[in-house]
Amino acid sequence: MGILNGNPKHEPMHYGEVFTVWQGSAVAKGAVSCYQTYLNHAGDKDLKKVLEALIDQAKLEIKELDTLLTDNGIIPAPVMPERPLVKLEDIPAGARFSDPEIAAKIAADTSIGLVACSQAMGQSVRADIGALFAKYHLSKAALGFRILELTKEKGWLVPPPLQLIRPEV
């Protein structure tokens, strides 16, 4: 029988896994705080639904990653306080994030999250940790598609330079 060949939950985490799980939890906690703020600033109902889905996903990740950490004797990053609900009209115009700004930021965050999940999957020795990040990768890919469709539908997408004239073959 080889090393680390039993039940993954009984195997030790290596330092890379510890840091990646801890960092994933900390990033998700920051995302909840940030997206709750964006929710206060958002005016578009479809954008609010996507933000709520992102918050739900981040809260799931926090729960699962913090459980993994505490089960392995590691103290998770502290939870940030919940943001209070604020009426959009109470936020001064100059201090308000616009819907296109919010959409661009959550699209970038989701893209970065996909790369981070891929890296976590690649470095994981424990199959349960790799599978956990694979699950998050799939969720983020689906949310990223929703964000892309939303930005196209609302006219908020700022595409990179487009190749309008193609070279003849």
Results as ranks from 00 to 15, higher is better:
G2V: 02
G2M: 04
I3R: 13
I3K: 13
G6I: 09
H14Y: 07
G16P: 06
E17R: 01
T20M: 05
V21M: 02
V21K: 03
W22R: 09
Q23R: 05
G24E: 00
S25W: 05
A28D: 04
K29F: 07
G30S: 00
C34T: 15
T37G: 07
Y38P: 01
N40P: 15
N40V: 14
H41Y: 12
A42E: 08
G43R: 14
D44T: 14
K48M: 09
L51E: 04
L51S: 03
E52N: 15
A53K: 15
L54S: 14
L54P: 08
I55W: 08
K59F: 07
L60I: 14
E64C: 06
L68Q: 14
L68K: 15
G73Y: 13
I74A: 06
P76F: 06
A77W: 03
P78A: 06
P78N: 03
L88D: 12
I91C: 05
I91F: 06
G94D: 08
S98P: 00
S98N: 04
D99I: 08
P100K: 03
I102V: 11
A104R: 06
A104E: 07
I106K: 00
A107V: 08
A107K: 14
A108C: 11
D109V: 05
T110H: 01
G113P: 04
G113L: 02
G113H: 08
V115R: 11
A120M: 07
A120E: 02
G122N: 00
G122R: 01
G122A: 00
Q123D: 00
G130T: 03
G130N: 07
A131S: 10
F133E: 04
K135F: 12
Y136I: 02
L138P: 01
S139Y: 01
S139G: 04
K140Y: 06
A141F: 00
L148E: 05
T151Y: 09
E153R: 08
E153A: 09
E153Y: 03
E153N: 08
G155L: 06
G155H: 09
W156E: 00
P159V: 05
Q163A: 11
Q163K: 12
I165Q: 15
R166I: 12
P167N: 11
E168V: 10
